[in-house]
């Protein structure tokens, strides 16, 4: 007899069941029962945000080089899970070719953003020639905790394309998986859990996006939202909830299954720019400056 896998949540590096004790049936397009996934609740969202906040500062404090190494490690572990991911996608209606292609894109994204982890800073920062005797420079800094609503069309390439640049930039993430195709998301959690990504940096919740999103969007300790295509009503209500603490809302409409749907901008969209001033002492009678 086949042993069926229970798909749990991924929060704080652990795989807890939803505190609500609820689950929902994941079905193939032709109505076949594939697995049970957790139907995460508002409290799960809250717990995930809490651990994401706790994890964020130490994740950001890791050296850029180290973050790159960890992202590359994700690619390595991913590679070993290829077959499982393809199978999960096929069970939800993808052809083997489509599934293989999507997994390949996901792995390639890891490599791509691993390389960015210690480079976007140089390309998005500046030394500013101010007209006084001050050293003035601007650098990117992570926004903090970012809520992601994963692309509801793709099973893997979307959420990976959304998540990687955000964590490469030192943010932590609470990710609401594709409601209908949540399996790869949780498998991704397993990949992350075994690839040196500190617990809490990425937190993955499965369930009904419409139920979870208002809590995530309204949470006062979430700094930004990364929203993929969503039904208008859901999108509007998320953006409205985001206003209370002035969350940055970035709406992503790119086709994540395209190999080209990657770039430094997806990192810097989730960065603040900090400008620092410091006096330059004037020596030998000249004004200091750059």
């Amino acid at each position: 007899m086949e042993i069926l896998k229970t798909y749990k949540l991924y929060i704080g590096g652990q795989f807890p069941r939803t505190e609500s004790g609820r689950s929902y049936l994941v079905e193939s397009p032709d109505g076949k029962a594939i697995a049970n996934a957790c139907l995460a609740s508002k409290k799960d969202v809250r717990n995930a945000v809490q651990v994401a906040r706790k994890a964020q500062s130490s994740w950001a404090a890791k050296t850029a080089f180290n973050k790159g190494q960890i992202l590359y490690r994700i690619a390595e572990v991913f590679e070993g899970r290829k077959a499982q991911l393809i199978e999960e996608m096929c069970s939800l209606g993808a052809s083997i070719q489509e599934a293989s292609q999507e997994v390949q894109i996901a792995i390639d994204r890891c490599v791509y953003y691993a390389g960015w982890a210690d480079k976007y800073q140089a390309l998005s920062s500046s030394v500013n020639p101010v007209a006084s005797s001050h050293f003035n420079f601007s650098v990117p800094e992570p926004m903090g905790v970012v809520g992601i609503v994963a692309c509801q069309e793709t099973a893997l390439s979307g959420l990976v394309s959304q998540m990687l640049p955000i964590i490469a930039g030192g943010n932590s993430v609470v990710l609401l998986a594709n409601s209908k195709k949540p399996l790869c998301a949780i498998t991704l959690g397993e990949v992350l859990a075994t690839s040196d990504v500190p617990g809490g940096v990425v937190n993955i919740l499965t369930g009904n996006v419409a139920e979870m999103l208002p809590t995530l969007a309204g949470h006062m300790d979430v700094n930004a939202l990364c929203l993929a295509k969503l039904p208008t009503e859901l999108m509007v209500s998320a953006q409205e909830s985001a206003i209370d603490n002035l969350k940055r809302c970035i709406i992503q409409t790119q086709d994540f299954s395209e190999a080209s749907a990657q770039g430094m901008q997806y990192i810097t969209d989730f960065q603040e720019i900090k400008t620092t001033w410091h006096p330059i002492e004037q020596l030998a009678g000249g004004m200091g400056g750059y």
Binding site: S126, N128, P129, V130, A131, S132, H134, N136, S138, M143, N223, N245, L246, R248, E272, I273, K274, T275, T276, W277, H278, P279
Partner: peptide
Amino acid sequence: GVVWANTYNKFDPASPFGGYKESGFGR
């Protein structure tokens, strides 16, 4: 968004200005 070290309230066209959190977004 702006940190003034050993100075304060300095502005310059070349220097990006803008906030974190509820101080706004964009520079």
